[in-house]
Nucleic acid binder design. Structure first.
Lengths: 151, 151
DNA sequence: GCTATAATTGAAAATGCTTTTCAATTACTG
DNA sequence: CAGTAATTGAAAAGCATTTTCAATTATAGC
C-alpha cells in the first residue's frame, strides 16, 4: 500500500483557485454574492452548511441572501467544484470537491477536512464485482476522528 | 487482502431476527405498528425511506401512522438495530445495521444492499493518524454499483 | 463610457419532510 | 380482569429548502 498522502495547503489553494473563472467560462456572471460564497468555501478548511456560508458570507457582502447561497452552491456543484460531505450526524455541509481518487478524513469536533490518497481499492472492487454480480461504479472511503487542534 | 465475504441470506436473517425481543427487553411494548415496521425492514433487502416503510407497513397493519414509523425507527436506531444509509442522492433511508467491521455495497438502481467483510483498513488508519495528527475513531467504506438483477 | 437586455438578486410565499402536541386507545403488570 | 402508563394517529407546528416575482445589476455591443 502506498504511503497515505495528505493534501498540503498549497494543494488546497490549487483546488479552490479559479472557481470564479470557471463560473464565467460557463456564461455565469460574477457577482458580489457569488464571490462571497466562493471565498467563504475556498478559505474555510472545514465543511460548511448553507446557513454557515450565508452567515460568514455576509461579513464581506452584507446584502447576501440565503437563497443565493443555495443557488450558488447548486452551480458550483454542477461544475464539480464543490460537493456535499456525508457524516453520521448530517449530510448538508459542503466542501471543495475531491479530485480523482482522493478520500476524506473529517474532524468530528470542528468539521475540519483533510484530503488524502494512498489506498488502492480497485482490487477489492474487482473482487466484489466477481462475488456479487454487481457492476461497481464508485466508492466512498472516509475516516472520522478528532484533529490535533481539537484534542 | 482476505477474500471479500458477502453476507448470505441466512446471515441476513440472523441480523434481523430478535428485534422485537430486543425492544421488549428494553421495556418497550410490542404493538402491531412496531411489528409492521420491523417486519418491513427485516424483509426488504433494500434501503427504505420512512415513507416507503409506512406505505409497505400499511399492507399488514392498515392503521399504521407515519409518525409511528419515525418513532419506531428512532428506537431501533438507539438500540443499534437499524441505521441510515448514506448515498450521493440522499441519506434518509434505513437498513438493518452493520455488524462489526462490515461495509456496504449498494445498488444505485433498486437500493439493494449487500454487506461484506474482507478489507483491512486498520493499517491505513494508523498511517493517517501518524501523518495527520488526528485520532481516528471510525470509518466508512461503501461501494456503489448496479446489481445483477438491475443490469 | 453608455445603453440595452437578460441574468441575477433578495424577500416573501410555498413546499415537503420531520417533530411536537394531545386526547384516545391499548399492552402489560399484578 | 382491572388499573395504569406507554403508545397511537391526527392535526398542528417547525424548519430547511425551493419557487415566485418584481427590482437590480453585470455584461455585450455600440
Amino acid at each position: 500500500m502506498a504511503q497515505a498522502h495528505i493534501s498540503s495547503e498549497k494543494e488546497i489553494k490549487e483546488r479552490t483557485g479559479g472557481w470564479l473563472a470557471r463560473l464565467a467560462e460557463q456564461g455565469y456572471r460574477i457577482t458580489g454574492s457569488r464571490r462571497a460564497v466562493v471565498d467563504v468555501l475556498a478559505e474555510a478548511g472545514t465543511s460548511l452548511s448553507p446557513a454557515e456560508i450565508y452567515e460568514q458570507g455576509r461579513v464581506a457582502h452584507k446584502q447576501l441572501g440565503l437563497v443565493t447561497v443555495y443557488r450558488t452552491l447548486e452551480k458550483l456543484e454542477e461544475l464539480g467544484l464543490v460537493q456535499r460531505v456525508h457524516r453520521p450526524d448530517g449530510c448538508h455541509a459542503y466542501i471543495p470537491a475531491l479530485h480523482g481518487h482522493e478520500h476524506l478524513l473529517l474532524c468530528q469536533e470542528c468539521g475540519r477536512v483533510e484530503y488524502f490518497r494512498g489506498d488502492d481499492l480497485s482490487e477489492l472492487s474487482r473482487r466484489l464485482e466477481g462475488e456479487s454480480g454487481y457492476t461497481i461504479n464508485d466508492h466512498w472511503l472516509q475516516f472520522f476522528g478528532v484533529c490535533a487542534a481539537c484534542q
